[in-house]
Design a protein around this nucleic acid. Structure first.
Length: 658
DNA sequence: TTCAGGGTTGTGCAC
DNA sequence: TGTGCACAACCCTGA
């Protein structure tokens, strides 16, 4: 009896493309009788990760574009959106569609690993063969770690050395010319509707989320959900997703040989907009609408043939991709611990303000944080809402919120400002905001960059501090970037554009904007004159406080896995007057602060601060000098459950203590 | 074991 | 307008 022809599911995840897909090539290599291109509507992304409307929009763009491209190759085919968690869906789907093979691209994100392990186990039980290929990064992150003596890749030289041992980066694979038909798409089984608790993304919606109404969608046609079906607020980003756009953008970059071959990241202006100074391909790399290897080799070929002097890694374009691989290698080796200080052997312990709450069972951060200091909470809110009173910082945060993208050096500026160079607030708070707002949010890179900028890992020269005045001045003396994103200040003279509080009142009036208050007052209160807040602190003063705090923490030299960090007794080593929550000699795990009313007490509706609403909620009162940090302690319902990957609420996360 | 040199992307001043 | 250096001082790598 002849062997039946394979019936294959190709499971799309972070590889929303047809070009350069080793996994798709493997699927087609099976010469299947039918190929089902599917996307499982993972409740993690819908409910449990922090995903703002702009990134949602980008994802839906990518899916729609991919689906069209599939249909172009086979009019009977398209991307089949199935509205259920992969962990419950697959066993039923395997049976219903008589599947013989499941093929997908490897994903080393902490959650993705767990999800995929579970799916592989289910496939094995169902007698389905699983094929997994690497294609998301230049190198397989696990292989990179292996060649780095089993350790996380913490520097670019380590990546280059380990990469050299692995061998050359694979050349990209062309897109397929045709695709097999899908088989019958009947779904006779019952949908397991996923739980929507916790629904972290509720703040992203202004209508009911209804994407789980039926396995194949509202019209039973496997359609890609719409923003309104998801109940999401309007997306405001001008940036669009999809493989077609990504390849066009790449082609236009490659066509400019000088730009491609001589690109040096530190020399690109963070103040440039329309057009920006860098490629803006990062969101496409995130969703896989552009292959990193395609990008690498298209650039490398230009560099090889370039007649002039080409730039080199790490500052060159290919160097940027090596940094991406470095962070993937660090994450691959450390798993969930990579995304937090607590229990992370490679992350320096600094007693930042607003520390994360640690789940006592798993040792993982819960997504909630402790307000150890009311002033720090005010700093954090004003930072997030773009009303610090420092125009450079506020312009960046407003660009981030509305457009979902800011230049890499802009990210440096705001990250340094929030952590070691201003507010002394935990880097995990900043990483959460970026996670919510960035359209190119890549867990590994976001976490790694926040650790870099806060000098807790990867980088240690904490005395190199970005000034919110001097740094932008280097790039944009006229303050055009500020005028674009902080229009209240559009009329200000160049001399005061980064320090508007120094302008004489008479000039402020003449230029149509008064510098006063904290940014919560309505602009109309003064007739036609607009208002811009006063700076929330004296930068030089805060910089000195922060550097002293950092110096002290470095001297004490704890890392996230130190027993004193794990049990809270690190306090014995820090002076009560040091920056951060340092009072007393012992406390709960990590940098958490003891709660007056015990675990679980406190503010239930704290998510109100997620809203950028200058009228509400009011800022908490500043802490009186000498008052106990305890008295200000509140538990926030600020959830970030499993934000490092795409965790599904149905599957319980492994304990991280092993 | 020690120590010089380098580390993608600081600031402020002198020349 | 650009370059070089002090500032105060971190870690890691390799000789």
């Amino acid at each position: 009896m002849p062997k039946p022809k394979p019936r294959v599911i190709y499971w799309f995840r972070t590889d929303l493309r047809l070009h350069d897909s080793p996994a798709l090539k493997a699927a087609l290599g099976l010469k299947p009788e039918c190929l089902y291109p599917i996307w499982t509507w993972d409740p993690h992304y819908v409910y449990h990760a922090r995903v703002g409307p702009n990134r949602w929009k980008f994802l839906l763009d990518c899916q729609n574009d991919l689906s069209k491209s599939i249909t172009k190759l086979n009019s009977k085919s398209k991307l089949l959106l199935i509205r259920e968690a992969p962990q419950t869906l697959f066993p039923k789907l395997f049976k219903e569609w008589k599947i013989t093979h499941l093929v997908f691209e490897k994903d080393t994100d902490a959650y993705a690993r767990e999800r995929d392990e579970k799916v592989v186990e289910l496939a094995k039980k169902a007698g389905v063969e699983v094929i997994i290929k690497t294609g998301r990064t230049l190198y397989d992150p696990d292989e990179l770690v292996k060649q780095n003596k089993g350790k996380p890749t913490m520097s670019i030289t380590q990546v280059q050395a380990a990469g050299a041992k692995i061998g050359s980066i694979p050349r990209p694979i062309p897109s397929p010319k045709s695709l097999p038909d899908p088989g019958t798409t009947n779904l006779s089984f019952v949908q397991d509707k996923p739980a929507n608790n916790p629904d972290i993304n509720s703040t992203q919606r202004n209508a009911e989320e209804s994407s789980y109404t039926g396995l194949a969608g509202p019209n039973n046609d496997f359609s890609i959900p719409t923003m309104s079906e998801l109940g999401l607020k309007e997306a405001t980003t001008p940036h669009r997703g999809g493989e077609s756009i990504a390849l066009k953008m790449l082609a236009s970059i490659i066509a400019n040989e000088d730009y491609t071959a001589t690109f040096e990241k530190p020399k690109t202006a963070p103040t440039a907009f329309d057009p920006q100074a860098t490629t803006l391909l990062s969101p496409h790399l995130h969703f896989g609408s552009l292959s990193a290897r395609e990008f690498y080799w298209r650039v490398q070929d230009v560099v090889t043939n370039y007649k002039g002097r080409a730039s080199q890694p790490p500052t060159s374009l290919t160097g940027q991709l090596l940094f991406r691989d470095m962070y993937f290698g660090a994450q691959a080796a450390l798993g969930y611990a990579f995304g937090q200080t607590y229990n992370n052997p490679h992350c320096r312990f600094i007693p930042w303000h607003l520390p994360s709450t640690i789940h006592p069972g798993s040792g993982l951060i819960t997504g909630e944080y402790q307000i150890d200091d009311a002033e720090a909470e005010v700093f954090f809110r004003r930072w997030k809402e773009g009303r610090t009173g420092f125009p450079w910082i506020d312009a960046l945060m407003r660009q981030l919120r509305t457009e979902g993208w800011i230049h890499h050096l802009g990210r440096h500026a705001v990250a340094c400002f929030l952590t070691r160079g201003g507010c002394y607030v935990d880097w995990e708070r900043g990483a959460e905001v970026f996670e919510e707002w960035l359209i190119d949010h890549e867990a590994a890179c976001n976490i790694g960059n926040w650790q870099w900028l806060s000098c807790t890992a990867f980088f240690a020269q904490f005395y190199r501090c970005y000034s919110p005045v001097a740094f932008p001045l280097k790039w944009d003396k006229e303050g055009e970037f500020v005028r674009r994103y902080v229009p209240e200040l559009a009329g200000f003279d160049n001399k005061f554009i980064y320090e508007p509080w120094r302008a004489p009142i008479v000039d402020q009036k003449r230029w149509g904007c008064l510098v006063r208050g904290d940014g919560t007052e309505s602009a109309e209160e003064d007739g036609k004159v607009k208002m811009y807040p006063k700076p929330m602190f004296d930068f030089k003063e805060r910089r000195d406080v922060c550097i002293r705090g950092m110096k002290n923490a470095y001297k004490i030299g704890l890392h996230g896995d130190d027993p004193k960090v794990l049990d809270g007794s690190w306090r014995e080593l820090f002076d009560d007057k040091a920056a951060g929550p340092t009072e007393g000699s012992k406390g709960p795990p990590g940098a958490m602060v003891e709660e007056e009313d015990g675990v679980g007490a406190g503010c239930e509706n704290a998510d109100g601060h997620e809203e950028v609403d200058h009228k509400s909620p009011p800022n908490p009162p500043a802490r009186k000098k000498g008052a106990s940090a305890k008295s200000d302690t509140k538990k926030r319902t600020h959830k970030r459950e499993a934000s490092q990957g795409t965790l599904d609420g149905i599957v319980t996360r492994k304990k991280n203590k092993a």
